[in-house]
Design a binder for these strands. Structure first.
Lengths: 357, 357
DNA sequence: TTTTAGCACTCGCTCGTCGTTAGTGCTAAT
DNA sequence: ATTAGCACTAACGACGAGCGAGTGCTAAAA
């Protein structure tokens, strides 16, 4: 399973790199002749062929069929991303576009993530996505309520992860400001710091006692709170620039496209995948190499966590074909994600460290 | 432009109906022989051919090429939907599924619409969508605020269309409950009933006076309010079951699919289209027959407005190929949409009136 | 021992041909 | 007005030839 990175001769690395990059550009299998022509390799096509055969034996290249050129395998891409990739120098235009995004003052995390994923999509020309990860054991830190009319009010919940949710509560009986004040006071005292599973019957009974035994109101409200808590740790996945997928021939057939659309539709696989990875660097998931997510078999996910005050609050990334322009995408996401995190109050990392996982 | 409905002989209608239905089922051009065989038409294929030629001259049928069968044109579908469509009898299973949806108690419009569009998609096997239409001149009917810490609070806005929006407001100076109380009181007094365009400088100045000239706070808040108001009348489009598109051969090529995905991506065309249509019946938009929405040239949109307390608050619908199973889709959406509206407090329409536009 | 030139071979791709087939339009007979 | 019959059309699938890009292997050169 582990890659024999050290074992690879310098020339093999160069050849692999050339093949990956040629294939990223052209999308077609690349042959030995092409390599000799275009690159600074001084050897002949026959030598390249021998090397290519060995690279294939190592599982780094694949042949669609005899007498076609070679295509990088997933392991090949992985090796490329991990060790062969050169820094991509962002163009002034790209930097400007990111900076312009940063100028737009948006106060809501959702909006920022959404916008950022759109920018990621348009800068890289792949499909962009934004994720708010699943959170475990979200609790409520504060309740507020706002009266609408005699039969309904808005319940506002501030969660431990900083999210805010509201819900329209319609009650059978009558409510007024005084009842609401009592309710919020009781909720703040009794039902904070509990996650969805920790709300027990005793909590509810204690609450009822505080609310003069108005069990209808209490039940309605508790149901709402439970619902909101479940919502809060649900995670979210938003996709932008889906139509960009179509320009890549690997998604021209229904097979791959269907798999990917299905995965996006279901959300959970991608959500789990992204939520399961921590850290602040850009991550690259190539195909289903780690076999956990079977569904995005022929696509690559690249994403960068967004952090705020030391916590991961989301992620932005792009989805595209295996032969993704990794250099560019990594640079773009790194910069964009860093800026977004910075915008959210995260200290900027000054050292340009290793960005791979 | 107007269709010569009355002019069509009974037999022509029957033939057109048979062709549309055969083509919906099979997806392929249908020939004269097929009609004579399968249907109760007593005449021969030659007669059918003559009739078909005339129907084609009327613009109701099309020929992909000579020596292929006929395919309904957009006008043909339109005529079919408007006058030839027979009621679809929903199966017990479908009814049960809708009823089950109705049992799920959800309090938020967004969730209900979202869920309903998913059900629409799964019942019809087309792509479902849910829309909250653009609203003009949304105003705020009530403000509330909830303190988070000394530098931030949550601003809650109840809009004239019943929607609720919250925003995290971070201020330079310090805030406390007392300041917030004054702020909300002032806002409720001075900045209600105004839409985004009507907020003038004098409003802001009046507000500043009330807030002891704290122009920083006032400006921050007003910017937020403006943003929220703009958000509120923005409209929303959510799509579910996108992958279902792929099973229809008309979306197998990149062309049509790209157009449709692009339109969904941009949202505004579809939003405008749906927002522009009022009433409570199911609407059918076939291709870009009315030339306003050029982009969904080869798809059909069917949607039903969702009403609550006499107002249109959203719409659910499906997107699919031109040869959509109209009978089924219309029945499903009519029933589903009616139920959702009912759930939202709209009186149930008892008379099963004409459901076409 | 490594590299390279040369060569036979493979296999997909593109044409053109050809027969088949489903469907048409037209005409003449009913 | 309808229909049977017939000639015609165009898509479709199979077949085969030619092409070309690319390979693997071998034997010679470095």
């Amino acid at each position: 399973m582990s890659l024999p990175i050290g074992e690879l001769s310098e020339r093999k690395k160069l050849i692999l790199k050339a093949i990956v990059e040629a294939h990223i550009r052209g999308g077609e299998p690349v042959g030995s002749k092409y390599i000799t022509e275009s690159k600074q390799l001084t050897c002949s096509s026959a030598t390249i062929r021998n090397e290519m055969a060995e690279l294939e034996a190592l599982g780094l290249l694949e042949q669609p069929h005899t007498s076609a050129g070679r295509v990088p395998s997933k392991r090949g891409y992985r090796l490329y991303v991990d060790t062969l990739l050169e820094e991509y120098a962002m163009t002034a235009k790209e930097i400007a576009q990111i900076n312009q995004l940063m100028k737009i003052k948006m106060s809501e995390l959702d909006q920022i993530l959404d916008k950022a994923s759109k920018v990621a999509s348009s800068l890289t020309n792949y499909t962009g996505f934004a994720i708010k990860p699943r959170a475990h054991a979200v609790t409520v830190t504060k309740y507020e309520a706002a009266l609408i009319d005699a039969h309904s009010f808005i319940l506002i919940v501030v969660a431990s992860n900083g999210a805010v949710k509201t819900r329209n509560v319609i009650v059978e009986g009558e409510v007024d400001d005084k009842i609401l004040a009592r309710l919020t006071a009781a909720l703040n005292e009794l039902v904070t710091g509990l996650d969805a599973e920790q709300i027990s019957l005793s909590t509810i009974i204690a609450l009822e006692n505080r609310m003069s035994g108005d069990s209808v109101l209490v039940n309605t409200v508790m149901k709402c709170i439970y619902e909101m808590l479940s919502d809060l740790d649900g995670g979210e996945l938003k996709v932008s620039g889906l139509d960009r997928l179509l320009q890549y021939p690997e998604f021209a057939d229904t097979e791959n496209l269907g798999e990917l659309l299905g995965a996006i539709e279901r959300k959970d696989e991608i959500l789990d995948l992204v939520s399961g990875i921590d850290g602040e660097d850009v991550n690259v998931v190539i195909g289903s190499e780690d076999c956990s997510v079977k569904v995005i078999n022929n696509s690559t996910l690249v994403f960068k966590p967004i952090r705020s005050h030391g916590k991961t609050v989301g992620a932005i990334g792009v989805i595209g074909p295996l032969r993704m322009d990794y250099a560019r995408v990594l640079a773009t996401l790194d910069s964009l994600g860093g800026n977004v995190s910075h915008l959210l109050g995260e200290p900027k990392v000054s050292d340009k460290g290793d960005k791979h996982d």
